[in-house]
Design a protein around this nucleic acid. Sequence first.
DNA 1: CATTAATACAACCGTATGGTTGTATTAATG
DNA 2: CATTAATACAACCATACGGTTGTATTAATG
Lengths: 113, 113
Amino acid sequence: MQIAPPDFDRMFGALADHTRRDIVRRAIDSEEGVAELASHYPMSFAAVQKHIAILERAGLVTKHRIGRRKVVRTNVETLRVARRLLDQYEVLWRGRIDRMTQLVTENARERDQ
Amino acid sequence: MQIAPPDFDRMFGALADHTRRDIVRRAIDSEEGVAELASHYPMSFAAVQKHIAILERAGLVTKHRIGRRKVVRTNVETLRVARRLLDQYEVLWRGRIDRMTQLVTENARERDQ
DNA sequence: CATTAATACAACCGTATGGTTGTATTAATG
DNA sequence: CATTAATACAACCATACGGTTGTATTAATG
């Protein structure tokens, strides 16, 4: 089995919901089961369960059985993958800036010589 | 008029589509109008127009009239806002790690003394 | 100033999303 | 091993999304 290529549609789609972002935040440093997580939100247990399923498909969280609960843990590596994509845009932006200043410098040299 | 608070639902929602991410990428260092952008994708002009509208509502691009075209430009600052949110998760994660190593160290000291 | 290139908008269609309630499965534990 | 706490799944509903085609508006330019 190959490792799955990053699915940015799913990643960003999963992050595009306030409840899901809050679950990701909580699951970074707590060890809560599905029911415990659900208790924090003004919606049904099943709704939270679905949100967790979406986060799971996106690779943002994993579930691990502990006792009779299934504990939800955030997969920080996937968050980093998303962050790196945003970094790429920043790199492109810097490249553009560099090319612009390059041009200005060349023009100044031409003008001054 | 107040400056709008960041709408992460819209931001990440806008980024959750391959075509839209590609538009963001292109609009970082090109100066293309809506029609020129549309020519790159295997879909109708109107579809691309809608994608751009979604990016615009999310604050990820802006449109500026140049001659008879309306040029689309990426708003890098909004990308940075999104990135900073992901950074926040990383900070939480580090905090957790720190607390864990803290605990281990304390236990070791107790055991050793 | 009439033409037309460029963009905007409206209506429609199929499918996905976010929510609900109800039922089924699972596996720790008394 | 029967109970039941915990989770999973199915069916349903309203609304949003991604796409289409067609029509309307706008404003630069010959």
